[in-house]
Design a binder for these strands. Sequence first.
DNA 1: GAAAATGATTTTAATTATTAAATACAAATT
DNA 2: AATTTGTATTTAATAATTAAAATCATTTTC
Lengths: 300, 300
Amino acid sequence: MARTDDRFRSAYNKLLDICTNMEVGGQLPAEVVLAERMEVSRTIVRSALHKLDAENLILWEGRRKTLVKRPDKRHRLSQSESLPTGEELERRFLEWILHFDVPAGTSLNIAQLSRQFGVPAHSLQAFLSGLSRFGLVERRAKGGWILSGFTAEFAVELSDFRLVLEMNAVRHLLSLPEDHQIWGKLKEIRKEHEDLRRDLKDRYHDFSTLDEKFHTTINSVVKNRFVLEAQKLISLIFHYHYMWDKRDEQERNAAAIEEHLDWIDAMLAQDRARSEEAALNHLRRSKETLLASLKNHKLG
Amino acid sequence: MARTDDRFRSAYNKLLDICTNMEVGGQLPAEVVLAERMEVSRTIVRSALHKLDAENLILWEGRRKTLVKRPDKRHRLSQSESLPTGEELERRFLEWILHFDVPAGTSLNIAQLSRQFGVPAHSLQAFLSGLSRFGLVERRAKGGWILSGFTAEFAVELSDFRLVLEMNAVRHLLSLPEDHQIWGKLKEIRKEHEDLRRDLKDRYHDFSTLDEKFHTTINSVVKNRFVLEAQKLISLIFHYHYMWDKRDEQERNAAAIEEHLDWIDAMLAQDRARSEEAALNHLRRSKETLLASLKNHKLG
DNA sequence: GAAAATGATTTTAATTATTAAATACAAATT
DNA sequence: AATTTGTATTTAATAATTAAAATCATTTTC
């Protein structure tokens, strides 16, 4: 068999639903109408109708499609569970690299990985060629892929890139009018930081999520598809690192909370110089932490 | 037939070359040695040897591979011409979009495009999924691709992104020591601008190339894979626009040359404020030009 | 007879099957 | 014992296949 008939199956089931809501003896609408309502092509509608006819659920004569009897559960076609989305795949792939410390230079086995992640091989290929734009993987001349890797160099360049983008976001943020919603959001996040600081002993694991939220909020003021795309990757990587690097976790998070608060306060005070300084301070520390955690992993 | 035997053919021809440089009656080296020298796997070497044996060019008994007679031109296998590289494909694809004003929302026909560009369909797919990271194309739920396009919005965001990256490059550049090679390069480029300004009436077409060289030089001080990748796309698009937008070309280029010279002088003078201002000035004008040219195209 | 609906055909693209090539392992020769 | 060859297995690129979409032609209905 070539491609799956998932689309047909789901359309057929939808058609059953339509029949269930009709009186026996009633007429089904025209093929074009059904196609439009079900968001598929007429070809699928027609094959579904053929099957309904073959199952004696309808009587199909030319343009008369008379419901003979209401379908029940037994008539429904089973659906193969839907494939993971692109984002889900991205998340799992990065998780795999970062969590298991897959070393740079590892050659990636498409067949095995596609089994592991439960996606068809060609969609993994497509995904990898997307990633190759970021230099995380490379295509070999002979064929196949290698993980050019999550190296220290990669981490440095990623951090520097992040610095450029976030400093830009900060400058942009400070130019926003007082009634912009960002100021309210910042105050909220400030409170969340204080709450977390108070209960840090019990809740220090929660910082990873709060950190992501904070950076996402700051960057949200920049409406730019290139920036957003880059930031998705950046925040994924930093997020996972926070999650898995367990050394001195509580102390590190305590320090980061203070850095965040300084930064937030400077922005709320509309103090540009101080904001930039606080941002620089935090982002540089963040870079060091990422690097240190990498070295630690390689050694451990 | 499944995959092509291009690799085999090129290896076989290389093997013929090796035989040509040998005495009749001589021994070919071991399979592993040949494989290494020809940069292919032993499997290919063995199939090539099998063919040489079948053609009675060598006598192959176990590890003795005796040259029976020298091969001539008739023995060579014809090679299918090599496929365009990834960069070549990227260039041609953008050229197609920009030059023919393919409108946003156009659905891309993989089969037809792969014929048009002379590449296998799946490598076009891979390329498109790379581009989708930049939001230039999108995958549809139904399957297939659409050109989400080179819209005014895209141009604005691209220009803004360029602004962020180049301003960062300028700041970085000004912090470089006096003996860094960038200063020499800048002086060279300054001279090229002056030369072009002098002969502008005859050579105004050359500005497109000089512009690309100038921006590439400035950005070259930032060693960062993400920045570089983004800049490849940016410079391609700006470069093609300069090439195809013919309205007021000479005047526009004259103005741009002056802007470049102001910018270069400010940097050579190590004047940070003036450099940033000159950069801003040029980049903003550049953005307006790009936008205007877009609107013009759509109308014309 | 015009609009709408259906029937048939062509085109496009997702997936499988097939084959080329690489790799790994075992046996044989020097 | 080291090197080389022979065989088997694994991997990935491409062609073939089939589902689905799009297009065109015909028929039906008002």
